[in-house]
Amino acid sequence: MTNKHPIGIFDSGFGGLTVFRSIVAQLPQYDYMYFGDTSRSPYGNRSFKTIHQYTWESVQWLFAQGCPLVVLACNTASAKALRTIQQQDLPNGYPTQRVLGVIRPTAEVIGNYSESKEIGVLGTKGTVNSESYLLEIAKFFPEVKVHQQACPLWVPLIENGEHDQPGADYFVHKYLDEIMAKSDSIDTLLLACTHYPLIQDKIKTYLSPDIKVVSQGDIVANSLSDYLQRHKEIEQNLTKTGTREFYTTTDDTDDFDKYASLFYGGEVKSGYVAMK
Score class of each variant (00 low, 15 high):
66 G>C: 07
159 E>K: 10
253 T>S: 10
157 L>Q: 08
188 T>S: 09
143 E>S: 15
194 T>M: 04
181 A>P: 03
201 D>F: 03
133 Y>M: 08
231 H>A: 05
93 G>S: 14
39 S>A: 15
113 Y>V: 01
242 G>N: 11
160 N>V: 03
259 Y>A: 06
2 T>Y: 11
156 P>I: 02
122 L>T: 06
208 S>W: 02
146 V>E: 01
116 S>W: 00
116 S>A: 12
68 P>L: 06
160 N>E: 13
68 P>K: 01
48 F>C: 06
147 H>I: 12
188 T>K: 01
238 L>F: 03
234 I>R: 01
156 P>K: 05
43 Y>E: 04
65 Q>S: 09
101 G>I: 04
173 H>L: 12
220 V>C: 08
268 V>H: 11
149 Q>V: 10
110 I>W: 00
48 F>I: 14
30 Y>D: 00
46 R>L: 14
141 F>T: 02
28 P>G: 12
75 N>F: 06
241 T>A: 11
89 D>T: 14
266 G>D: 15
198 L>F: 10
219 I>F: 10
216 Q>M: 15
106 T>M: 04
218 D>S: 15
106 T>Y: 02
123 G>D: 09
129 N>K: 15
158 I>V: 12
56 W>T: 11
92 N>F: 03
71 V>A: 03
21 R>M: 11
158 I>C: 10
60 Q>H: 04
222 N>K: 15
56 W>A: 06
194 T>A: 13
83 R>W: 04
